[in-house]
């Protein structure tokens, strides 16, 4: 069987690297962690992996703006390697701070074949506060390979800068090309009507988007935070599957690589 190789970034204040690694392992992949500087030095090669994960955290302390400085580092030090990775049709996922980095790089939504110009943003939450709370998500119809077959999700958000924002023209394009992957929802599964179901004031309840290929995906909620049944906040009072529901995202990615790369 083909081994699926995943590279999980760490260092520079990234802090969800261990659980992201675990999630991919539970999904059946071979996972390695790499410090961004190892990629820059060349002691680890991006080329030898199938999936790249930008985990959550506070890279560079969220200073200036969340994800900004890490995005700069990638743009000025690893642009070529990343371009090759994308053109090889490999997968990239960015979670929370990882999503912020990808948005600020321009990787997402990656429309018009442009992966290097920022087109959308993740701004300070409307509440002005960092919040850790579990929210409902509706999975929209999209080309995203990570969410294939999933209808709803219940995951935690843990951020202070997660308010999705785009100009009307960009938003129209996202809708037209079905690039909106996840929307914050009410407990009944319908589009969230207000806080706290939409926890940050995101435009059109957007919680995650992908590029037109569906292979590059970013989201604010944390699927790697629900990899065991007991991660669920109500596991002592609800009937739940033994396996963490967030795992499905990682399993989809591994399956895609096995079938397509």
């Amino acid at each position: 069987m083909r081994k699926v190789k995943v590279l999980v970034l760490y260092g520079h204040g990234i802090n969800c690297d261990n659980e992201t690694k675990k999630a991919f392992e539970l999904a059946g992949a071979c996972v390695e962690k790499a410090h961004t500087n190892e990629l820059i030095e060349g002691s680890k090669k991006l080329d030898s992996y199938d999936i790249l994960a930008f985990p959550g955290g506070f890279s560079f302390g969220d200073d200036i703006a969340a994800g900004k400085i890490h995005a700069v580092k990638f743009k000025y030090k690893l642009k070529k390697n990343l371009l090759k990775f994308i053109s090889d049709k490999k997968l990239i996922i960015g979670i929370c701070n990882g999503f912020q980095i990808m948005v600020k790089l321009g990787f997402l939504p990656g429309i018009n074949d442009d992966y290097w110009t920022q087109k959308v943003t993740l701004a300070f939450n409307d509440s002005g506060k960092f919040e850790d709370r579990w929210i409902n998500l509706k999975v929209e119809k999209s080309p995203c390979v990570f969410t294939k077959g999933i209808k709803n999700l219940y995951l935690p958000i843990r951020h202070g800068e997660g308010k999705f924002y785009a100009e009307p023209k960009t938003l129209a394009k996202l809708k037209k090309e079905n690039l909106i992957v996840l929307r914050y929802a009410n407990p009944n599964g319908e589009k969230a009507s207000k806080y706290p179901h939409n926890p940050n004031g995101s435009l059109d309840n957007i919680a995650g988007i992908c590029d037109p290929s569906g292979r590059i995906f970013g989201l604010m909620p944390h699927p790697e935070a629900y990899i065991y049944r007991e991660n669920h906040p109500k596991h002592t009072r609800e009937t739940l599957p033994e396996k963490g529901v967030g795992l499905a995202i990682f399993e989809n990615a591994v399956k895609y690589v096995k079938e397509n790369l």
Binding site: N15, F130, R133, P156, E224, A225, N231, P233
Partner: peptide
Amino acid sequence: RQFDHEVQATSVIKHLV
């Protein structure tokens, strides 16, 4: 809520139940 109380994915019983 303003503390990240579940990073590392080790949370079993949270402070809000």
